[in-house]
Write a protein that binds this DNA or RNA. Structure first.
Lengths: 209, 209
DNA sequence: CCTACCGATCGGTAGG
DNA sequence: CCTACCGATCGGTAGG
């Protein structure tokens, strides 16, 4: 009779969050019923509601968990490489790695951007925007020293690269069959081309060898 | 008594399609009720079902209309400019113009890619893929003549550019407030940067001036 | 965490 | 194109 009484199964809440994340990312919030989440974790629908006051609250927590992941990773991404001019390329590759580590991250982000533009914009302004100057100042510095193209619009460039990375990873599953490849899967080729495009459209001159 | 009998209101069907497109694009298919579509055109829900056998059939027609638009526009996009090496840039600007002409096109495409990857992939293979070689062969020709970078992966490049264009236009509303601008709106700056990135990551050398 | 249950809303039908 | 209506499912509550 030590620890059997009424403790609410410590890991159950996390399991619900995990399955809800997966389902919201793949099917979308509206298409996912509480019952589907319950079934995925092996319980009944009302038990899900016991852990989260409402379906909306469940979504909120799922999104918040995603954002806190971002908040933790961003400093790591931005300091991913210190090898001078190649720093931005390495940061981008780290971003892609981060996105591909959990296949639901990119898809969930894209869905939230489409479904709740206002709320998501608020989250972006809160958590992502403060880091922007750190990157754009670095790009402007590169423009002054002549290694970065003069006609680059730093803010637009950064946002475009992030959009490209998120969209590519999120849609990778679909795009994977656009063309068959023998040597490797399509998504890897896309990611590699993405990194190349970001690099070659930023720095002046030809290949960095 | 000439034309009052039982003709099913010729323009009503198109009005339903138009409002359904707008609602599916902005809120998503699952979040859009037949009632909401009916209300938008000023009729009752059962009258919508009279024009389309089911909600799914309405979606099918909306998507088919979008695809037929694409099919008509693609030849025009690909022959948008004949001024030699700048041809691809002009084609891209034409693509962006096409996407921005109807704000719901990009958002609907992105939603369909997320919600129904299998079906959408089929539509892409049918309608878009046949045009791919026309672009990729042109890029490969440019690689042989030395105007296009050697390390460009033609197929990946084309898909990335299309993804970037669709995503940018679709998310433009959200991104518009990432940073305030005095001279022009954020989306225009994003589009211009997108075109620049596509150009500078494709061709060798500095600015074409 | 379960069973039993409910009001609301959904897509769709009947029948003019 | 409308009113009247229905079975199914949804999110959520009650009460253990």
């Amino acid at each position: 009779m030590a620890r059997s009484a009424e403790q609410p199964a410590p890991e159950m809440r996390d399991r619900i969050l995990s399955e809800a994340t997966r389902l919201f990312a793949t099917r979308g919030f509206e298409s996912t019923t509480i019952q589907a989440v319950a079934e995925a974790v092996g319980i009944r629908a009302p038990s899900v509601i016991h852990h989260f006051p409402s379906k909306a609250a469940l979504r909120e927590q799922v999104v918040e968990d995603l954002m806190s992941h971002w908040k933790n990773e961003i400093p790591r991404l931005l300091t991913a490489a210190r090898s001078g001019e190649d720093r931005l390329s390495s940061a981008l590759e780290a971003l892609v790695q981060f996105l591909m580590a959990d296949p639901y991250r990119a898809r969930l982000a894209l869905r939230e951007l489409l479904d709740r533009p206002g709320e998501t914009r608020g989250l972006i302004e809160q958590h992502l925007l403060p880091w922007m100057p750190l990157v754009t100042d670095y790009i402007r510095l590169g423009q002054q020293t002549g290694v970065v193209r003069e006609d680059v619009d730093p803010e637009s460039y950064v946002v475009e690269v992030i959009i490209m990375a998120i969209s590519t990873v999120a849609l990778g599953e679909v795009l994977d069959t656009v063309q068959s490849r023998d040597d490797e899967d399509r998504l890897s080729a896309m990611i590699r081309e993405l990194v190349r495009m970001a690099r070659d459209s930023l720095f002046v001159g030809g290949e960095p060898a």
